[in-house]
Design a protein around this nucleic acid. Structure first.
Lengths: 221, 221
DNA sequence: ATCCTATAAAATGTCGACATTCGACATTTG
DNA sequence: CAAATGTCGAATGTCGACATTTTATAGGAT
């Protein structure tokens, strides 16, 4: 990730994103332009720019003449985003598999092992980053940059969800087995099977996270 | 399309979009904030807002500290957007088919006929609009709103491409037969076949348009 | 007591001006 | 003559203030 010059807008984006990670912002909460401006020592102009970009990413929702709000995701919407990601990355991976060598598949298996290790040691950030690297490696060789862009937007949202619910999501062993299963089907280079497997992976993950979100909202009510 | 109140930002967006349609903007051309502001009788603030939204849609490209440019699409990128759209809409349609009745399939067939008629009479706008309605009807019953949003962004770009190249794309008869073929596979309610057929449809269309774009750029050089 | 209305406070939308950065042209140097 | 450097103009980035809309509040009527 190269940023030639971090502009004020980027500071705003990072500030909100970190705040979302740390839970300083709650879903549905309103984000005031003026308080952000004073907090960061800026004027409202660059703040607005940053907020608009966060809206386009999908982390905020914007209502004209009213303001910006932290995006709320219903359990169903959570499942939908994972299903959509499965469709996109499943296809991208099926195309990428044809270009990949055995050595690269071995590296993926190794990454799965490192994920298991990170999970067993409760290293959240490391696990989250490894997961992103793993999945990106699956379709890195897909030449369709459109697909990459569309998938990346979803990946960002899921990064936040994973950060919140990872503890009760998968056991370390399950993480390894699930991801090794994906590597195995990639080795087969059978497009239909690859798509099917990756779609299933995201479908299950999405439903589990949706359940965890349901539990949480149930306890709060 | 309901707009509670058309704000200045929307005027900017429509102005650029119409300009793209009419060919008043060429790919790669720079879009000056100040000239837009004076042309439309606004200040630069709402102009910037509109430009940012067009960037997020993908109709403009933005280079920090430099400016906004009309998005350029290489033939390969054109194919990629159509392939991606095929993947998304193919899946969405396969899910929607299960919910659809025979009457709705009949209506789709009728729409295919109207598209043939519009094409034979050289009614470009009508054909373009009918095509959008047809394809949206295919997956209207898919409950995954994520998919709808992602597909819509691509649909907008393709609307522009179609507007430019439709004349040499398909004969009226081919339009009807191609779309009726899609309806037929929808009737079967076989998810895999539906996905395969729709992906193929967009793949072929994307490649034809890419060829037309290649010819054009070849003549210009 | 509840609902409606008018008023006031606050947040977003818009504006014009200044600061900073980029690109092009002219100048200098090897 | 080519390449590097310095300068100047123009466009973007940012700012503070004003206008408009929304939201909250207080008052009065039913």
């Amino acid at each position: 990730m190269l940023s030639p010059k971090e502009t004020y807008k980027d500071i705003v984006i990072r500030h909100i994103y970190d705040g979302l990670m740390e839970g300083r912002y709650s879903p549905g909460e309103k984000v005031l332009e003026s308080v952000l401006a004073t907090d960061l020592g800026l004027s409202r102009a660059p703040v607005r720019e940053g907020l608009r970009e966060l809206v386009s990413i999908g982390l905020l929702e914007y209502r004209p003449q009213v303001g910006n709000f932290v995006a709320t995701m219903t359990p169903q919407e959570i499942v939908d985003t994972y299903v959509t990601r499965g469709v996109l990355e499943g296809f991208a991976s099926s195309e990428a598999a044809a270009e990949m060598s055995e050595e690269e598949f071995d590296l993926l298996d190794e990454k799965a092992g490192r994920m298991q290790l990170a999970a067993s040691r409760n290293r959240k950030k490391e696990l989250n980053d490894l997961g992103e690297i793993f999945h990106k490696s699956l379709f890195r060789h897909c030449r369709n940059l459109q697909l990459h862009k569309q998938a990346e937007s979803l990946s960002l949202k899921h990064h936040l969800l994973f950060h919140r619910y990872w503890a009760n999501l998968y056991s370390p062993e399950e993480i390894a087995s699930r991801h090794r299963k994906i590597v195995n089907v990639m080795r087969s280079k059978n497009p239909d099977q690859i798509e099917k497997t990756i779609r299933e992976h995201y479908f299950i993950t999405g439903n589990r996270i949706a359940d965890l979100a349901r539990q949480e909202s149930g306890n709060n009510a």
